[in-house]
Amino acid sequence: MIYQGKRGWYKPSLSLYWYDKNPTTKYVTTNNVNFRTAEKWDSPVAQSKKAGESVLVLRKMPKSGWLEVVLTNSVIGYIPDSPNYVKNLKKSTTIIVSIVVLFFVLLNKNLNHQMKE
């Protein structure tokens, strides 16, 4: 969003907050998921997503451990912070990159060792 010539993001909730950087974290659903209107399973379904769809997480709720999520059309929903429902794309990418780097480090050490023999 651009406001008075300045680019930023706002948090779509009851009270608006302005940020210079995007305050959300991109997650992906790991199963078909019903996001709730409150931090409890017996609350109404706010919106449903299929496995593999992206959502934007605003924050982890401190008391319940549920995630507050921005859904389609700026609907706010909640889901437990569990890999059974959603996973952080950034963490997944970091793990994959770390494994690839480790592989090449070990491969390089092995090649250097073979060349010395």
Rank of each mutant, 00 (worst) to 15 (best):
I79G: 13
K63M: 11
V57N: 02
E53S: 01
L56P: 06
P83I: 15
W18V: 13
E39C: 12
L14A: 04
T93I: 15
T94L: 03
I95K: 15
P44K: 05
I79W: 11
V55R: 08
K63H: 11
N31E: 04
S74I: 15
W9V: 02
P83T: 11
N112C: 02
Y27S: 02
N110C: 08
G5L: 11
P80S: 02
N108I: 07
Q4N: 10
Y19N: 04
V105R: 00
K21C: 01
V69Q: 12
Y85D: 00
W18C: 04
V100T: 10
K87M: 13
S82T: 03
G52L: 06
S64F: 14
N110F: 06
T94Y: 03
V100G: 04
I2F: 09
L107P: 02
E68Y: 14
V75A: 11
A51Y: 03
L106S: 14
A38S: 10
S54L: 14
T24Y: 08
K49M: 10
V86A: 03
I79L: 04
H113K: 15
V75P: 00
I76K: 15
E68W: 09
Y3K: 15
M61R: 11
K90H: 07
T25L: 01
K60N: 07
W9T: 12
N110M: 08
P80L: 00
N112I: 04
T24G: 04
I96C: 11
P44H: 08
V100S: 01
I79A: 05
S64N: 03
K116I: 06
Y10S: 02
D81I: 05
I2P: 05
V86D: 09
Y10L: 12
K116G: 06
K90A: 07
N22C: 12
R59I: 15
I96V: 10
T72W: 08
E39V: 13
S48T: 10
S54E: 15
T25Y: 09
S74Q: 13
T72R: 14
S64I: 04
F35W: 05
P12I: 05
F35I: 11
Q114Y: 14
T30W: 06
R7T: 13
L89S: 06
K87C: 07
